[in-house]
Simulated scan of single mutants.
Amino acid sequence: MPTVEVTDLKDDDFLLDVREDDEWQAGHAEGALHIPISEFVARYGELTEAAPQDARVHVICRSGGRSAQVTMYLVQQGIDAVNVDGGMQVWAAAGRPVVNDEGQPGYVL
């Protein structure tokens, strides 16, 4: 399973958040694309439209389990994807910004 540490992410890396809507609304990484894992296969086209050409997709969830599943799926589709180790819990613990839909400080649910 290709993984990356939160501390290795750059500000301009493409981030795909696969948590559910309530988790996303509580707080997420600014600029991330949100497609819940429960809707991922049906909404897969949104990822291919949003991701920059040949960009690595950094997949994140709360702790790394759901994002690992999506990462494996993407790799099987030939997409350069990596799982963000530890997910949003580690993201927040590392001091990376977490915002809500209004751009205000959020939290990891």
Rank of each mutant, 00 (worst) to 15 (best):
M1Y: 06
P2W: 04
T3G: 08
V4A: 14
V4M: 06
E5G: 08
T7F: 00
D8K: 14
D8Q: 15
D8H: 13
L9W: 13
D11K: 15
D13K: 01
D13F: 03
F14S: 04
L15A: 08
L15S: 06
L16W: 08
R19G: 04
R19I: 05
E20D: 02
D21C: 01
D22Y: 10
W24H: 15
W24L: 11
W24P: 13
W24E: 06
Q25V: 07
Q25A: 11
A26R: 12
G27S: 13
G27R: 12
H28W: 11
A29G: 08
E30W: 10
E30N: 06
E30P: 07
A32M: 01
A32I: 03
H34Q: 07
I35N: 10
I35C: 04
P36C: 04
P36A: 02
S38L: 00
S38K: 03
E39K: 12
F40D: 05
F40R: 12
V41Y: 13
V41G: 04
V41E: 15
A42N: 12
R43T: 00
R43H: 02
R43C: 00
Y44M: 06
Y44P: 03
G45R: 08
T48G: 01
E49L: 10
A51T: 01
Q53H: 09
D54W: 00
A55Q: 09
R56N: 05
R56D: 00
R56L: 02
H58K: 09
V59G: 03
I60R: 06
C61H: 13
R62V: 12
R62Q: 15
R62G: 09
G64T: 11
G64Y: 14
G65D: 11
R66K: 14
R66D: 09
A68L: 08
Q69H: 08
Q69K: 10
M72F: 10
M72C: 02
Y73P: 01
Y73Q: 12
Y73F: 15
Y73I: 12
Y73V: 07
V75E: 08
Q77Y: 09
Q77P: 08
G78C: 03
I79P: 00
D80E: 15
A81F: 06
A81N: 04
D85A: 09
D85S: 08
G87L: 11
V90Q: 07
V90K: 10
W91Q: 14
A92V: 03
A93K: 09
A94D: 05
R96A: 07
P97F: 14
V98N: 07
D101C: 04
D101T: 07
G103N: 09
P105T: 14
P105V: 14
G106A: 09
L109R: 12
